[in-house]
Design a protein around this nucleic acid. Structure first.
Length: 567
RNA sequence: UGCUCCGUGGUGUAAUUGGCAACACGUCUGACUCUGGAUCAGAAAAGUUCAGGUUCGAGCCCUGACGGAGCAACCA
């Protein structure tokens, strides 16, 4: 980034995060040749969720804004936890979100050779040693956060012996767990991570990329910073829990670096969303235990889940923009995410008629067999989306909730003797109901219409309190509609000391409605097509859908002040 | 009990580096409306965890409390 364009960025009034400020300062000071280079480093052990989206937007976003590059690097240092299946999904999700790493696709496993050489170098300089003690002993010697550790009896082993042992560890001569390589730093450090951290362990599982080539694998701390260094990364952005790792990150870079260049680790707050849970391990449990239908269950906070639910990448990026990056571990309200989709879909989603809980209304004075096409505006927010014709006839479906025999005060819908407009068509008046003999439930309502009130017609200015959506019964197409609510009924389901998160699963998080009636134009809708069902919410065609049997997911309901009043 | 980090309306973030605490979501009014949506206009809501100190002046600097989070995988 040159000085001129940097000054330009500075001139803009929009506040920048503390991270962006660091980047600006580093650029101004001329660090690393005025270069910015970031990386997004997922471990391929699960699907990306919206928390990763926060990191992706930062990593790719900063590089983009300041004329830099962003690498996609798979942090694949633990062959027993990682699978190729995840790599493809991760790439797909990043692209879907709207970012591109171009040719910069890397793997920590690409550096196993260099990392091994660096470890050997540390041994030669007396900065690493092979420890023969079992895990429990090493762990006990580490001390506790408030008590210093004690040194391993193997700490003073000769360089020659260490070199020999480390080579043989990698040849597979020793069992898993029998020996590790440790950095020799300081067993009394107040920082636990500096107490001779383990940097290599023996794992005899096949790696998805390097196969059987290695028997020893580097730990996260020994791979991450060095990978940054090898790739020329300048700003290594990660979440707050790695803050205490930074001294080790810097220590290792100090041993590795040969000139002025050095990557800098900066930590920000991870995303916590109310009523949801972000831990990959627990999300995997939900999938494995069948609590959800899969990683892409529309109730999951995964990117594939949100996509299936009907969220747009724009809305997710917008949400992340709204919450910002700080060092305060906050719980962000899901309603802000919902606001972001509504804001986006309001501008883009065509409005259609869909009746979720149908009730047949018969317009007794409308000629039998007659069909009129009424013209409906596709999106009042965007004239360019045009208009369409919707068939109207003597029998229509309306929403059960839109009719009450004995309505309360301020009920602006249909009730005996009351008038409402059927949107885009006529004003109707309820004249009676038909109830079932035994259960007393309402089966049909009878109405009359006023032929002068057709929308756009000469007497169409007549005002009524309510406007209902409707679908012509003989033209309707049936559909299944899946309604979603929050997966958990606790604000912080995973953060409760005494209780397992499973106890907070919301039993009503999925409601399946069958026999919903949709306007005929929806027959040709394809998976992921998004609509606003007028007066109800935003809906998206599910993958399970096909021309013969439509399936819709409710992304989010519309704001509903009437429902709020009646709570 | 050690170390590291963090405390600003209900929630999440700002405050151009010490100068009238601002924005968004949410909430509540009112207008408009053939979506109880959207849009528009407005309101309530924090004196910045607390106590000292420096200063003409502190959310910002200093000291000390209090509160929260993280750190003791051969996970990342």
């Amino acid at each position: 980034m040159n000085e001129e364009s940097l000054r330009e960025k500075e001139g803009s009034k929009t506040p920048v995060s503390f991270i962006e400020q660091f980047i600006i300062d580093d650029l101004k000071e001329g660090k690393n040749n005025r270069r910015i280079h970031t990386r997004f480093p997922p471990e391929p052990n699960g699907y990306l969720h919206i928390g990763h989206a926060k990191a992706i937007c930062l990593d790719f976003g900063m590089a983009q804004k300041y004329g830099g590059k962003c690498n996609l690097r798979f942090d694949d240092t633990n062959p027993v936890k990682e699978e190729v299946e995840y790599i493809d999904s991760i790439k797909e999700d990043i692209h879907w979100l709207g970012f591109d790493w171009e040719e910069l696709e890397f793997y920590a496993s690409d550096y196993f050779g260099k990392l091994f050489d660096f470890a050997v170098d540390l041994i030669r300089r007396g900065l690493a040693y092979v420890d023969d003690q079992p895990a429990e002993v090493i762990s006990a010697q580490k001390g506790t956060p408030s008590q210093p550790g004690v040194e391993s009896p193997f700490r003073t082993r000769s360089i020659t012996e260490n070199l020999d042992l480390f080579e043989r560890m990698n040849k597979g001569e020793f069992d898993e767990g029998s020996r590790v390589l440790r950095a020799r730093i300081d067993m009394t450090s107040p920082n636990m991570h500096m107490r001779d951290p383990i940097i290599y362990r023996i794992i005899k599982a096949a790696h998805h990329r390097t196969g059987e080539a290695w028997k020893v694998y580097p730990m996260y701390d020994f791979a991450h910073g060095q990978s940054d260094y090898f790739e020329g990364v300048t700003h290594s952005l990660c979440t707050l829990e790695f803050e205490v790792h930074r001294p080790l990150y810097d220590w290792l870079i100090d041993q590795l670096k040969k000139d002025d260049y050095r990557p800098r680790q900066i930590e920000f707050n991870r995303l916590n969303l109310s009523y949801t849970m972000m831990s990959k391990r627990r999300l995997l449990e939900l999938v494995q235990e069948g609590k959800v239908s899969g990683w892409d269950d529309p109730r999951m906070p995964t990117l594939c889940g949100l996509r299936r639910r009907g969220y747009t990448p724009e809305s997710i990026r917008r949400f992340i923009d709204l919450i910002g990056y700080t060092k305060f571990e906050a719980i962000n309200d899901v309603s802000l995410l919902e606001h972001a989709v509504r804001e986006d879909l309001n501008l883009r989603a065509p409005r259609v008629f869909g009746v979720l809980n149908p009730l047949k209304a018969i317009i007794t004075n409308y000629p039998e067999g007659k069909v009129e096409n009424v013209t409906i505006i596709n999106n009042p927010e965007d004239e360019s989306m045009g208009k369409r014709e919707v068939p109207f006839s003597r029998e229509v479906y309306i929403e059960q909730e839109d009719f009450m025999e004995n309505p309360p005060h301020k009920f602006f819908r249909l009730a005996p003797g009351m008038e409402v407009r059927l949107k885009g068509a006529y004003i109707i008046k309820c004249t009676g109901v038909k109830k079932s003999e035994n259960t007393n439930t309402i089966e049909e309502v009878y109405c009359t219409y006023d032929p002068d009130t057709r929308s756009g017609g000469h007497a169409s200015e007549k005002k009524v309190k309510g406007t209902l959506h409707w679908v012509s019964a003989q033209h309707a197409t049936d559909a299944e509609v899946r309604l979603y609510d929050r997966l958990f009924n606790h604000e912080d389901p995973a953060g409760q000391k005494e209780k397992d998160y499973r106890e907070f699963l919301n039993p009503g998080s999925l409601k399946i409605l069958k026999g919903c009636k949709l306007e005929p134009s929806l027959k040709s809708a394809r998976p992921l097509d998004k609509f606003q069902f007028q007066r109800l919410g935003y809906f998206c065609v599910d993958y399970d859908s096909n021309e013969g049997s439509l399936v819709f997911n409710r992304t989010v309901p519309l704001r509903d002040t009437w429902a709020r009043i009646n709570k």
